[in-house]
Amino acid sequence: MNSQDWTHEVVATGEVHSHQIVRRLHTERSQFQKIEVLETAGYGVGLFSDGRIQHVAGDEYIYSETIIHPAALLLGDHCKRALIVGGGPGGAIRELLRHRSIETITQVEIDPTMIDVSRRFFPHISQGCWEDPRVRLEIADISDFLARNGERFDLIIYDVSEPMKDTPASNLFSSVFFTKIRAHLSERGIFVTWAGSVGPRSHELAASIHRAMETAFPHVMRYVCSTQSYGTSWLTLGGSNHPYEPLQLGREAVDRAIADHIQGTLRFYDGTTHLHMFNLPKDVRAALAQAPEHATGAGIQFQPGTGVQP
């Protein structure tokens, strides 16, 4: 295999996941990261940040629907004001705009180059989301935004890159910062973040983020999905002050809620998928119960293939 024609992303020690590259459409180094737009043989055009996959056309809908719809439907008519941290090419915003209750979405993105590249190369993902009058884009560091903004949100979504050293996300995944996020939630609000791979040899980051979430929030929801282009099972977490019980919703109840609250047709998420996602496999439950203590510290930094550093 010619390494020049394939992506090369370490998933765990001794394990990589790769995509064959058909064309390199764009490469640019911004103030914060190296941004690449690659056409892959299996999944079409994709966004890569510092060599790590973010989204590809073939299955970004799985990630985008997963990070938005379970929490938004639990909120129901209370899902009016949302904050999206990061947001990349706009898939999460697109899905949130489907909810009839949504009134405002504030996107806080630190890197204007990411928005420019997304507008140019990923209109099939954003589908005009930034032109919707309900969406407000702020180019800012999320730490600065939270410090100067006292607004509370019903739904806060973390759609940021992995917390690798010397990247904008390096200090965002800790109980300290999650507690700051919690202060900006409304009474029934939910904070949702991806937590990463929960494969048998690649779960340490997810376990650390889970521990940090449990330290910062009185109630934490956990669910998994398989975004095939990531090459691994993926954990998503929801933190809240209010106790939500996703598994109390049966298949029919979720399907009715989708019909009542969401415009258009979903490709991935429905009542059957909901039950599958929230029933975590035994080995995943065991892995999350064994998170290292440093997860509650000031920061979690991900070292691909070598674990998580405090």
Rank of each mutant, 00 (worst) to 15 (best):
W130T: 13
I115D: 03
I181V: 15
G90M: 03
G14R: 04
F302S: 07
H26I: 01
S143M: 12
E293S: 14
I68L: 06
D50N: 14
S226Y: 15
W194V: 09
L155T: 05
Q107V: 13
L205S: 00
E15Q: 09
H78V: 04
G128C: 07
E109C: 00
R24M: 07
P246S: 01
P163A: 00
N149H: 11
K282V: 15
G189L: 06
T106V: 13
P70A: 00
R152C: 10
R201T: 14
N241E: 15
E15N: 07
I110Y: 10
F145P: 08
R152Q: 09
G250Q: 06
P304G: 03
G297E: 09
Y43R: 11
I84K: 01
R267D: 06
L266G: 07
I139Y: 10
T215H: 12
L155Y: 10
V308M: 02
D59R: 06
E103V: 12
L73M: 05
I181L: 08
R100A: 13
Y230I: 08
K165C: 04
T13E: 13
T167A: 02
S233Q: 15
S186F: 02
T27H: 14
D59L: 11
I35H: 06
K80A: 03
Q303Y: 02
P112F: 00
R100M: 06
G90S: 04
T227L: 14
I62K: 05
P243Y: 04
P218L: 00
N2H: 10
R119P: 05
T296I: 13
G297T: 07
S64K: 05
S118V: 08
C225V: 14
Q263C: 10
S18K: 14
E28T: 13
Y61G: 00
P281C: 11
H184S: 13
E162Y: 02
H242I: 07
R285T: 08
A12K: 02
R29S: 09
V10M: 05
A41L: 05
V45T: 13
Q54E: 15
H210C: 15
V56C: 11
R29W: 01
T179D: 12
N241T: 11
A169I: 06
G250N: 12
K282D: 15
Q4M: 10
E138C: 13
D50Q: 04
G231V: 09
E187P: 03
H294M: 13
E36M: 05
E214V: 11
R222S: 15
M164F: 06
R134D: 07
F153Q: 08
D132W: 01
H99G: 00
P246H: 06
R188A: 00
L83M: 04
S170P: 08
T227A: 11
R256N: 11
L97Y: 03
G90W: 04
